[in-house]
Design a protein around this nucleic acid. Structure first.
Lengths: 341, 341
DNA sequence: CCATAGGATGTAAACGTTACATTTGCGATC
DNA sequence: GATCGCAAATGTAACGTTTACATCCTATGG
C-alpha cells in the first residue's frame, strides 16, 4: 500500500503538506491540494489509521460495554450510540461482558492501551476503577447509562424510571383498579429498585396499600415474566391488574394469562415498560411506557464526545434525563368482572 | 503512562526482552519474566495497542456490517461474532450501514486504512470491491452471511432457507391445508427469493398449485406482516394457512388476525421463520423454523479467523451451511372450520 | 582445552503519521 | 532598498512497539 511519502513524492510536496491537505485543507493552496488529491487517487492511497492514532494518541474508538446485545433494549441503545459515533468519525467497539466484572475491567484497561478513547456503560455493575480511581494515571472517560446508583460521579443519561413507574400505576388506578400486582426486575439492579419504588409511589398516590404478596421478581426475560405471572395467579386470585418492569416480562405474562384462559384486558390488565416494537403487536397490544432507547444511546455518545473534547473539565455530575410517556393500548381497561380463580 | 522503555529500565533488561516476555514468554528466562512482571505491576503499564498494531500492520478488529442492529435477528448474529472474536483476542467494530452502499464501501476502505483486519457482511447489497477486485492491492478478507447470491466467491455461512421453507409448507400440508398463503420478504433480497422458492417447492411436493393471488410481500417488519395479512384477508377469503418469511412478520400477522377476530389456529394456521424468543410467547405460541442465528455469527467469525491466518490461501468458496429445524407450537393445526369472510 | 551449539539478551531499524519549529517567497510599508 | 508580515510549504523529531540480526554466555562433546 502506498503511504504518505509516496503521495508526497508523486505530488512533488513534502509529507507534512500532504498531511495538512488531508486534515486542515485551509492551510494548503488549492492548486497544491489538487495535485495531492490526484496522487491519492492515482496510487489509491488510504491513510493508515494506526499510524495516525499512534502519533495523536487516540484511536477514535469508543467501547460500549453491555452484558449482552441479544436483547431489543440493548440493541436499540447501541444503535443510538453508533448513529452519533458515525456522524463524528468515531467507531463503536462492542464489548460484551456477560455480566462478568473481570471482563468489564479488561475493557476499561483497553482505554489505557489506546484501543479505545472511552467507554459507555450499560451494566449492572461498575468497573473497579470507578470506586478506586487511579492515582498515577488519569481517569479514563466513562459515561453511564440507566443502571447506576445516584452517588457515582460519572456523566450519565437515564430516564426518570421512578416517575414513569408511578405514572403507569396511576393509569391503572384511574381505571378503577385497587389491587395491582407487580413483576419486578432483579433487585440487585438499581434500575429495578427504582421501578419498584415508582410502583409503590403510584400506589401511595392512589391511596392503595402495598401488598408484598402480589409483588413477584423476574429477571427481565420473557420466561421470567411468564413464570412470575403464574406464581402471582397461584398466590392470590384477587388482583385485577399487573404492572411489569419491562415489556419482555409483560409479554411473558400475557402468554401465561392466555394459557390460563384469563382474558386481557377484561379480566386482567397488564402493563409493560420500554415500548418495544413487539408490544404494539401483541395480543392484545400492550399498554406501556415509552422509553426513548435510541435517544438514550445518542445522548450517551454525545456526553462521551464532550468528555473527550474537554478531558480536564470535571464533566462529572453531568446528567441527562430523557422524557418518557405513557402509551395506552388495549391491554388495560377498567376492571369489569370479577375473574374466577 | 509508562511505556515499554520504562519497564525495560526498571527491570534492568532491554525493550526487546520485555516485548518477548509479553508475547513469547518461552524465549525468556523465568527469573527475568518475574522481574519484568514486577515492573509492569509497579508502573501499571499497559501496552500501547496502536504502536503494536502499527508495527505488525494489523488492528485485531473486525468490522461487522449490518443495515441495523435494532433487530433481534441481527443482534443475535452480532452476539455470535463477538463471542468468537473475544475468545480470539479480536474486537468487533460495529458498522451500521442503514442499507447505504456508500457507507458500506467506506467500511471496506477502513480495512485498507488498517482500522480493521477484515469484515463480516450481513447486507443485502455487496460492496463494490467484490465485483471489481483491486488490481494493485490485495483483496481484503471478507466473509458473507446469509444474504448473498450463489455466484460470489466469498467464504460464507448460511442456512438452507430453500429447504427450510419447504419444510414449513410441508408441515402445513400434512395437517391438511390445501390453500396456503405466503408473506414474503422484499424480493430484491436473495434470502427472500430463496424462502419464496422454498415455499413453492413445498407446495409442489404437496401437489398444491401456486396461486400468486395469495402471496403478499412485506419487508420483514412487524408492521409489514400486519399490513400484508390484512391485504391477504381482503383479497381471498378461502385460504386456511399463511406462512411468513420471518417471525416478526408472523407476529404482525397474528396481531392482524386477532384484530379481525379470526382465531389462530382454529380458523387460520400461521408459521414464522427464525425462531425469535418472542415467538415462543406470542398468543398463540408460534410454529416456526429454528435458525441458529448465534451460531451463524460464530461460524462467520471462525471463517474470518481462517482467512486472516492464511491470507493467500484461496479460502474462497468455503461455505458453511448450518442446520435448521421445525418448531411446532400452537399456531398451526388442522383446518377445522371454514371461517366466515 | 577448544570448538560449537543454542539459549538469553541486546541493538537498532522499521511501521506511517502528525506536531512543531523553520524556511521560503512575495507584496506592502517605511 | 531594507524591513516586516503573512501565507504556504518544508524538515524532522517524536509516538511505542516488534523483530531481524548481532552478540554474549554457558555448557557440552570431542
Amino acid at each position: 500500500m502506498a503511504n504518505i511519502k509516496d503521495i508526497a513524492r508523486v505530488a512533488g510536496v513534502s509529507v507534512a503538506t500532504v498531511s495538512r491537505a488531508l486534515s486542515t485543507p485551509s492551510l494548503v493552496r488549492p492548486a497544491t491540494i489538487e495535485r495531492i488529491e490526484a496522487a491519492i487517487a492515482d496510487l489509491n492511497y488510504e491513510p493508515n489509521h494506526l499510524a495516525a492514532g499512534l502519533r495523536r494518541q487516540r484511536s477514535d474508538n469508543v467501547i460500549v460495554a453491555v452484558p449482552s446485545i441479544f436483547n431489543p433494549f440493548t440493541s436499540a441503545f447501541v444503535e443510538g450510540i453508533e448513529n452519533v459515533a458515525r456522524a463524528n468519525k468515531m467507531r463503536v467497539l462492542l464489548g460484551i461482558t456477560e455480566g462478568d466484572i473481570d471482563t468489564l475491567n479488561k475493557y476499561v484497561s483497553m482505554i489505557a492501551g489506546k484501543q479505545a478513547d472511552g467507554m459507555i456503560l450499560l451494566e449492572k455493575t461498575l468497573p473497579d476503577i470507578v470506586r478506586n480511581p487511579p492515582t498515577k494515571s488519569k481517569m479514563p472517560p466513562l459515561v453511564a447509562a440507566c443502571e447506576y446508583p445516584p452517588d457515582i460521579t460519572l456523566p450519565r443519561v437515564r430516564t426518570d424510571d421512578h416517575e414513569a413507574s408511578a405514572l403507569v400505576v396511576g393509569h391503572l388506578a384511574e381505571l378503577g383498579h385497587t389491587r395491582i400486582a407487580a413483576i419486578t426486575g432483579p433487585l440487585d439492579q438499581f434500575m429495578s429498585k427504582d421501578r419498584l419504588s415508582g410502583y409503590k409511589l403510584g400506589l401511595l398516590r392512589a391511596r392503595i396499600e402495598v401488598d408484598e404478596a402480589i409483588i413477584a421478581t423476574g429477571d427481565f426475560s420473557l420466561q421470567s415474566g411468564y413464570d412470575a405471572m403464574l406464581r402471582l395467579l397461584d398466590a392470590d386470585p384477587q388482583f385485577t391488574a399487573v404492572t411489569c418492569a419491562n415489556d419482555e416480562m409483560a409479554l411473558g405474562a400475557l402468554s401465561a394469562l392466555q394459557q390460563r384462559g384469563i382474558s386481557v384486558p377484561d379480566e386482567m390488565s397488564v402493563t409493560g415498560f420500554d415500548d418495544l416494537r413487539f408490544g404494539a403487536f401483541s395480543s392484545p397490544p400492550l399498554t406501556t411506557v415509552h422509553i426513548p432507547t435510541v435517544e438514550i444511546g445518542e445522548a450517551a455518545m454525545r456526553l462521551m464526545l464532550d468528555s473527550l473534547l474537554q478531558p480536564d473539565q470535571v464533566s462529572a455530575s453531568r446528567e441527562v434525563i430523557l422524557p418518557h410517556r405513557l402509551i395506552v393500548r388495549q391491554s388495560t381497561a377498567a376492571p369489569k368482572k370479577r375473574r374466577k380463580a
